Lab assay of single mutants.
Amino acid sequence: DEDELTGILKKLSLEKYQPIFEEQEVDMEAFLTLTDGDLKELGIKTDGSRQQILAAISELNAG
């Protein structure tokens, strides 16, 4: 699971946030449920980064 998540972050060039997800024990299943508020709480402060992550999440959820 973590590897898939790392792959997604790398694709977005946001792998610098990978340790945050690891630290908070966010797995792929949890990742797919994250909201903008969750990402802010995790410490992802950049709007653009959150938008990219949320776009990836909705794409993955759309299947």
Rank of each mutant, 00 (worst) to 15 (best):
E15C: 06
I53Q: 01
T33M: 12
S13M: 06
K16W: 00
M28A: 12
E4I: 15
E4D: 06
P19G: 10
K45T: 13
P19K: 05
A30W: 04
S58C: 07
K40A: 10
Q51S: 11
S58Y: 04
P19V: 05
E25I: 07
E25V: 08
T35P: 01
Q18C: 09
S49P: 08
L12T: 05
K45H: 11
S49M: 12
K45G: 10
G63T: 11
N61C: 06
I44L: 07
E23R: 12
E29Y: 05
L39K: 00
S58D: 14
K11N: 07
Y17W: 12
P19N: 12
D36W: 01
V26W: 05
E41P: 02
E25C: 11
L32I: 09
I53M: 12
D3P: 09
L39G: 01
E15F: 03
P19Y: 07
I44T: 03
E59Y: 14
I20T: 11
D1T: 14
K11C: 01
L34E: 03
R50V: 04
G63W: 04
L14N: 00
I53H: 04
L39N: 03
G43C: 01
K40I: 11
G7D: 14
E22F: 05
F21P: 02
A56C: 14
D27T: 13
T35A: 05
E15G: 04
Y17S: 04
D36E: 12
I57A: 07
Q24H: 07
K16Y: 07
M28W: 04
E29S: 08
E22V: 07
R50D: 04
Y17Q: 06
A55W: 05
E25T: 05
G48A: 12
A30M: 11
I20Y: 07
E29C: 06
I8L: 15
L5Q: 02
N61L: 06
G63D: 07
I20D: 11
M28T: 14
D47Y: 10
E23M: 06
L60W: 14
R50Y: 00
L32T: 09
D47R: 09
M28E: 04
E23N: 09
D27H: 07
Q51Y: 04
I8H: 08
L34I: 02
E22Q: 11
G48E: 15
I53G: 04
E23V: 02
S49R: 08
T33I: 03
I53L: 13
G37L: 12
I57W: 01
I53C: 05
D47H: 14
G63S: 12
F21R: 02
Q18L: 11
A55K: 15
D47Q: 12
G7S: 15
D36A: 08
L5C: 01
A56N: 05
E41F: 05
I20W: 07
Y17A: 03
L12G: 00
N61G: 09
I57D: 02
T35S: 14
A56V: 10
A56P: 05
G43Y: 00
K16F: 06
P19L: 04
L9A: 00
L5Y: 03
L54K: 07
A62K: 07
E59N: 08
I8P: 00
D1G: 13
D36K: 04
Q51T: 09
K11Y: 03
T6N: 12
M28V: 08
K11Q: 11
Q18F: 05
G37S: 12
L60T: 08
A30V: 11
L34C: 04
E29T: 10
E15A: 07
G37M: 12
A30Q: 09
T33D: 10
E22R: 08
Q51D: 11
S13L: 03
I8Q: 15
L32R: 14
E15S: 09
A62P: 06
I44R: 01
K11S: 06
L54R: 06
S58G: 14
I44K: 05
Y17G: 05
A56D: 09
E15R: 03
T46Q: 08
E59H: 14
S13E: 13
Q52F: 01
I44P: 01
D27W: 00
K10V: 02
L32H: 07
D1Y: 14
S58Q: 08
D38C: 01
F21W: 00
L9C: 01
D38F: 00
D36H: 02
L60F: 13
V26Y: 06
F31C: 01
E2T: 15
K40V: 14
F31W: 04
K11D: 09
D38K: 09
E4F: 12
A56S: 09
R50K: 02
Q18E: 10
D3Q: 15
L34M: 14
L34S: 04
Q51E: 10
K16E: 15
E23I: 06
E23D: 09
E41W: 03
D47G: 09
E59A: 13
S49G: 12
I57K: 05
D27A: 04
F31M: 06
D36P: 04
E25N: 14
E41R: 12
F31Y: 03
D27L: 00
D36T: 03
I44Y: 01
T46A: 13
Q24W: 04
K40Q: 09
L54V: 07
N61R: 14
T33N: 12
A56W: 01
V26E: 03
S13K: 11
K10C: 00
L12P: 00
L9V: 01
G43K: 06
N61E: 08
L14R: 00
L54S: 07
Q51K: 13
I8E: 08
L5M: 10
E22I: 00
D27Q: 04
K40N: 09
L54M: 10
G63P: 12
L14G: 00
Q18D: 06
Q52M: 06
R50G: 01
K40C: 08
K40F: 06
E2H: 15
G63H: 08
E23C: 05
L60H: 12
L9P: 00
Y17K: 04
A30N: 12
I20F: 05
L60G: 06
L60P: 02
P19Q: 08
F31H: 02
D36V: 03
L60R: 10
G37F: 12
I57G: 05
E29W: 01
L60V: 13
L12D: 00
G7H: 15
T46R: 07
E2N: 14
G48W: 04
D38I: 00
F31T: 02
E15N: 04
D1H: 15
I8W: 09
M28N: 06
A62L: 09
N61T: 13
I20Q: 11
R50L: 02
P19I: 03
R50W: 01
A55R: 15
E59K: 14
L9S: 01
L54G: 04
G37R: 10
A56E: 13
D36F: 00
D47L: 11
L32D: 05
K16D: 15
E41V: 08
F21V: 02
G7R: 15
I57C: 07
A55E: 14
G43H: 03
L5A: 00
L34Y: 11
L9F: 11
D1V: 12
L54C: 11
L14P: 00
S49H: 14
D3T: 10
R50F: 00
K40S: 11
K11I: 03
D36C: 04
M28R: 09
G43T: 01
E41C: 10
G43V: 00
L39T: 01
K11R: 12
G43A: 03
L34Q: 06
E29I: 05
S49T: 12
Q52T: 08
A56H: 09
D47S: 10
E41D: 12
D38Y: 00
G48I: 09
D27N: 13
M28G: 08
E59S: 10
E15T: 08
D27K: 08
E59V: 07
F31L: 06
I44M: 07
V26I: 12
L54N: 08
K10P: 03
L60E: 10
L54F: 01
I57S: 07
L32N: 06
D47I: 12
A30I: 09
L12R: 03
N61I: 04
L12K: 07
I8F: 10
S49K: 09
L14V: 02
L5E: 00
L9Q: 00
D27R: 08
A62C: 13
T33L: 07
F31A: 05
E23T: 08
D1W: 05
I44A: 03
E23P: 00
T33K: 15
K10A: 12
T35D: 14
I53T: 06
E4P: 02
K10W: 00
S49A: 15
L34P: 03
L54T: 06
L9E: 00
R50P: 02
S49D: 15
I20M: 15
K45Y: 07
Q52H: 09
D1E: 11
T46I: 13
K11H: 02
E23K: 11
G37E: 13
E29Q: 11
L5I: 12
T46W: 03
I57E: 05
N61M: 06
Q18S: 11
G48M: 10
